[in-house]
């Protein structure tokens, strides 16, 4: 459906913006390495099913793309951050990883290793942007491209919400876990969405309240 495709495309766009920004500026300035490490963890733990199940060619290619691009991003960020100190990238990610794992143990579609990892990845994804937002808030301003990247990334899960509503009516599908974490993820972004709207529409300076 249109929401799902638009969501996946905005996810792809966000990754291209990010990689392009790093390559053009030849710098990791303003980009949180921690957020990108969390995304790599999210993709690797969610897509372990690549090894033993097949849904569609689209699905498989996208999964391979997300895993490989997230690892590539980390490599590039490491390469370009040698000379700069990321003063502001000091969010304690263990405070995101540990609770996500506990929530994965409590809420899952079956007490199997793969299902626990899948649930863990959803919880972790919902809060993975926090180090990046924290960094943005501390530095007070940001390159427009970086904010475009965060916007596209946030839009992707926001678009999954109408996708789930559509699938509920069209297919009778209702994945409580995905919907709950998806709503949390969108709420985490909502303040950012508002600020982005203000900045882009009214062209005012960027700051996170």
């Amino acid at each position: 459906n249109i929401f799902r495709i638009a969501g996946d495309l905005s996810h792809l766009v966000s990754i291209f913006i990010l990689i392009n920004t790093i390559n053009v500026k030849k710098s990791a300035q303003g980009i949180s390495l921690k957020t990108n490490i969390l995304y790599a963890v999210v993709f690797v733990t969610r897509y372990v099913d690549l090894l033993y199940s097949y849904t569609s060619l689209y699905n498989t290619l996208m999964k391979i793309f997300f895993i490989s691009s997230s690892i590539y991003t980390i490599v590039m960020l490491k390469k370009y951050s040698k000379n700069i100190q990321q003063y502001n990238d000091d969010f304690k990610i263990e405070y995101l990883i540990a609770p996500s794992f506990v929530l994965g143990l409590i809420f899952n579609h079956g007490f199997k290793f793969s299902e626990i990892l899948w649930s863990f990845s959803l919880w972790l994804e919902s809060v993975s942007i926090l180090p990046q937002l924290f960094m943005l808030q501390k530095s007070g301003e940001s390159q427009l491209l970086t904010t475009h990247y965060i916007f596209a990334l946030g839009l992707y899960r926001a678009l999954y919400i109408p996708n789930w509503i559509y699938r509920y009516f069209a297919e009778g599908r209702f994945d409580k876990l995905a919907i709950t974490t998806g709503i949390i993820q969108t709420l985490v972004y909502s303040d950012f969405f508002y600020v982005y709207y203000q900045k882009v529409i009214k062209n005012i300076g960027f700051s996170l309240p």
């Binding site: 849904t55 699905n59 996208m62 999964k63 579609h109 009778g172 209702f174 994945d175």
Partner: peptide, 10 residues
């Protein structure tokens, strides 16, 4: 509702 969740989303 369908029983069993298929992880066909990204």
């Amino acid at each position: 509702l369908k029983g069993g969740i298929i992880h066909d989303e990204l």
